[in-house]
Amino acid sequence: RDLLLDSGAAAVEILPLGFARSTFHFAGVPGVAASVHDLSGMKIATSFSGLVAKHLAENGVIPGGIVHLDGAVETSLRLGVAEVIADVVETGSTLAALGLTIIGAPIMKSEAVVIRPAVAGAAEEAELRFLRRLKGVLIARKYVLMDYDIRDEHLARAISLTPGLESPTVSPLHREGWTAVRSMVPADQAQNIMDQLEAAGARAILITRIHGCRT
């Protein structure tokens, strides 16, 4: 997303992919500025000149100059090339180690995205098919398939823990009084759900990865 917006290319974002996430901030030595509106007249070093210029213009800020640098832009402050930088910030620990602090709100949040030309071409049907397949992979990464056996008297409790996307699959077991359940559950909650199912009396709890899913 950041590369797309920085380039000014005639393209549009059509699908965020949920990885390679980053946040862009202004940063500088403590006390140099508190918000984007304090940056008027200051020199700003960045690897994303177009993105920064657009953000400043949207906030009515006229900088003293935007210095385009590739690589470690924080060195520009020590060299006196700029007074403020605009760069990717994750935890802020790197900035703190350099004696720098974040200025104001994020410039933007970015991640890997799918783009296409601003004017859609003739391959629209192929594009939609491609996007459906990509979305199927993204959904599959967020969920796992959970199977378990549960006594009939505890079935309602177990299903409340694993409602699935639509509804879980419930099948009677050969062993009387027991039921097998299969359901999609959020991958980041799977271990916690397993603990709760075990406490509810579930047995033979299995987790299987999903490689693709259409909803």
Rank of each mutant, 00 (worst) to 15 (best):
D2S: 04
L3V: 09
L5E: 13
L5D: 03
L5K: 09
G8F: 01
A9G: 11
A9L: 15
V12H: 09
V12L: 14
I14A: 07
L15W: 05
G18Q: 14
A20N: 14
A20H: 14
R21Y: 13
F24L: 15
H25A: 09
F26A: 09
A33M: 02
S35A: 14
L39I: 11
I44S: 09
A45S: 13
S47V: 02
S49Y: 01
L56A: 00
A57I: 03
E58K: 05
G60I: 05
H68P: 04
D70K: 13
S76D: 14
S76K: 08
G80C: 05
V84D: 10
V84A: 05
V88L: 07
E90V: 05
G92R: 09
A96E: 11
A97C: 05
A97F: 03
A97Q: 06
G99Q: 04
A105P: 05
A105W: 14
P106Y: 12
P106A: 08
K109Y: 13
E111M: 14
E111C: 14
V114E: 00
I115G: 08
P117R: 15
G121Q: 00
A122E: 08
A123G: 08
A126T: 03
E127K: 06
E127G: 15
R129Y: 10
L138H: 12
K142M: 11
Y143E: 14
V144P: 07
D147T: 04
I150P: 08
R151E: 12
E153Q: 15
E153W: 03
L155Q: 02
A156K: 10
R157D: 00
I159W: 06
T162A: 15
L165P: 11
E166Q: 11
L173F: 00
R175E: 14
G177N: 07
G177R: 02
A180H: 14
S183R: 05
Q189P: 00
Q191R: 08
N192E: 07
A199S: 12
A200R: 03
R203N: 09
L206N: 06
I207M: 06
G212T: 05
G212M: 00
C213T: 05
R214M: 04
T215D: 02
